[in-house]
Amino acid sequence: MAEVTMTVNGKSVTKSVKGNTLMTEFLRDELRLTGTHVGCDTSQCGACNIHVNGNLVKACTMFAGEADGAEISTIEGQANADGSLNVIQQAFQDHHGLQCGFCTPGMVMAAASLLKENPKPTEAEVRDYLEGNICRCTGYHNIVKAILAASGQDVSGIAAE
């Protein structure tokens, strides 16, 4: 067991962890931040996406010990300070970018990273960026639309039907 200290969604956290504790397990089991989901065991689906020091990371690919000293952000830390949905979350609701909701936290975290890197992406760039995220419900159409809308681009002309 080793002691780790990190900042999670703006709050400092210190815990003892085993060397083989995955970041997904640490967030879900130790911190009870269950919005980070585990959808596969091969780092393919992206349901466990979090931000580590501002970078998009699949939490299933790192040990909790590796996060010592890091700034961690999860889906639970994305809403505005008053609790309202942030621009990306609101766009997902407005454009029906989620159905069962299981992949959604990972999609929102990926979208936030994309828009930080590329504030006005094209449709092709959005689709390319989502290569590491699998959604089984939506067919991605409305996810892509939501991300374009969140970037401030007008999607009203895109066939909504």
Partner: peptide
């Protein structure tokens, strides 16, 4: 239902 799914509260 989206609000809880979008905030990790599902």
């Amino acid at each position: 239902e989206d609000v809880r799914f979008l905030t990790g509260a599902g």
